[in-house]
Design a protein around this nucleic acid. Structure first.
Lengths: 228, 228
DNA sequence: GCAAAAGTGTTTTGTCTACACCCATGA
DNA sequence: TCATGGGTGTAGACAAAACACTTTTGC
C-alpha cells in the first residue's frame, strides 16, 4: 500500500447513530448524556470516531454494540454532515446512520450505565451540534424506507399482532390507518405467518400473533415491495 | 476552537462525482482519465480531496467547478464509500455525489484539457476502485429522485419540447412511455410554461418550446411532487 | 349482560393504462 | 402529395379509500 496522497488534509471522521425503538405506542429515539467535552452533560446521539482500519459501517456497528450489547442491528446510512464548524471540539465530519432495535432488547442496566434514555419523538430535548437535524433526516428516511421495505419488523418483537403492527405504522407515518384496509394490505403481501397463539393482555378476545417470514421475503428477491 | 479529539485517527476524505448529462437521446456520464497514480491512465469519476476548511458539498462544488467551469450545479449526496481497502493508494473514504448538468454547458475544449469524455450508461468502461458501484447507485438514486422531484430539467436546455422531455424520462427510467399519457401527466402538474416559439429541427411541423416554472414549483413548497 | 378490542366485505372513487386518428409542414 | 413527427381524448382495469357490523370474552 503506497502513500500517494501525502499532501492532503486528514479529517476526523465520526459516525452518529439515531437509534429508533417502539414501545407499543410511540416511536422513540435513544439518546445519551455526553460524557466528555465539549458539550459534556448535554443530550446527544450515540456516536464515535471511525478508526483507520474500519469502514463507517463497521464503526457504527462497533459503537452500537458497545452501547447496546447487540449485534446484527439493522442500520442504514442517512447522510454526511460536514460543515466545518459543526463541532466546536474540532474539525469532524460525521456520517449519520439510523438503526432499528427492539426496545426490549436494550437492557435497563445499560441505560443507567451509559446515561442513556428513550425519548418520544415529539419530546426530544435540545441536542448537541447538528444532531437534531440528523434526527429529523433520520425520521424522513425511515418513513421512505418503511414505505417500500419491510423494516418495521426490526422494531417489533418476533411475535406481534396485527393491531400492534398497525400502531407501529401509524407512529412511523404519523397518521391514522383504517384497520380493514391495513389488514387487507398486509395479508396481500403474503409475508406473515399466523401463529395459533394469541396475545391476551390488551384485549379480552385476544389477537393472533404473527411472525415475519424473512426467508420468503428474501426468496422473492424483491428490491422493493410497495409496503404501505 | 479547542482540540479535544487528539487521540483519534484522521482519514483522507474524498468526494467523487457522477456527472450526468443528456444529449437528446441518451443519458451519459462524464468520466476522466486519471492523471496520477495509483491507477493513472484509467477511467474514473471526477473526484478530489476534502480540505480542512470546507464541507463535502463545498468540496464537490469546487471540484465540479474546476472541471466544468460551472457554478450552481445541481448535486446530491449518494452515499459514503469507506471500505478500508477501496483505494490502493491509501486509506481514503469517499463521499459520492451525483450532479446534473446541461451537456452543452460543458465546453469541448475542457474535455481535451482534462482528458474527460461522455459515456452512454450502457457503454461505461472499466473504472477504478469502487467507482462502478458508485455509478450504479447514482443511477438508482437519480431514478428515485426524478420520480418525485422535478430534477429532469437540470439536464435539459432552458427551452425544451415535450418530446425532448419524454425521451429524457424514457432514458432515466429505461422504459418507453406513452406520449398521450406523458403529456397529460406533465400538463397536470402545471409546472411548465408554454412558449409561442417552436423547435423546428427535428420535425417539419415543429414542437412548442416549454420552460420549467421554478418559481411556481417553489411556491407550492412541495417537498415531493409525484412526478412520474 | 356489557364493555372493549378483534376481525371481516362491499361500494365508491380516483388513478393508471391502453389505444388511434388528425394536424402541420418541408421536401 | 406524401412522409414525418406533433398533438390530442376516451373507455376499461386496477388499486386505494371510505365505511359498519359481528365476534369473543373477562369482568
Amino acid at each position: 500500500m503506497a502513500a500517494h496522497y501525502r499532501t492532503h488534509d486528514r479529517l476526523l471522521v465520526a459516525v452518529d447513530c439515531i437509534i429508533f425503538g417502539f414501545d407499543g405506542q410511540e416511536l422513540k429515539a435513544l439518546l445519551i448524556k455526553r460524557g466528555f467535552e465539549p458539550a459534556k452533560g448535554r443530550w446527544s446521539l450515540m456516536g464515535g470516531f471511525v478508526k483507520n482500519n474500519e469502514s463507517v459501517e463497521a464503526a457504527a456497528s462497533r459503537i452500537l454494540h458497545s452501547l447496546t450489547g447487540l449485534t446484527d442491528i439493522y442500520m442504514e446510512q442517512i447522510a454526511c454532515f460536514s460543515k466545518p464548524t459543526r463541532d466546536p471540539g474540532g474539525r469532524v465530519i460525521s456520517m449519520a446512520f439510523f438503526a432499528l432495535i427492539k426496545i426490549d432488547d436494550y437492557p435497563e442496566e445499560l441505560m443507567e450505565q451509559h446515561n442513556s434514555s428513550w425519548f418520544a419523538l415529539n419530546k426530544i430535548p435540545s441536542l448537541v451540534f447538528d444532531h437534531k437535524q440528523m434526527l429529523n433526516e433520520a425520521r424522513t428516511k425511515l418513513r421512505v424506507r418503511a414505505s417500500s421495505h419491510p423494516v418495521g419488523f426490526e422494531l417489533l418483537p418476533k411475535k406481534f399482532t396485527l393491531p400492534q403492527l398497525q400502531v407501529l405504522y401509524e407512529a412511523i407515518y404519523e397518521t391514522e390507518l383504517d384497520k380493514r384496509n391495513f389488514s387487507r394490505k398486509i395479508h396481500s403481501l403474503n409475508l406473515l405467518k399466523k401463529l395459533s397463539e394469541k396475545e391476551k393482555e390488551s384485549s379480552k378476545r385476544g389477537a393472533f400473533y404473527y411472525v415475519f417470514d424473512k426467508k420468503k421475503y428474501e426468496k422473492m428477491n424483491a428490491q422493493a415491495v410497495k409496503f404501505l
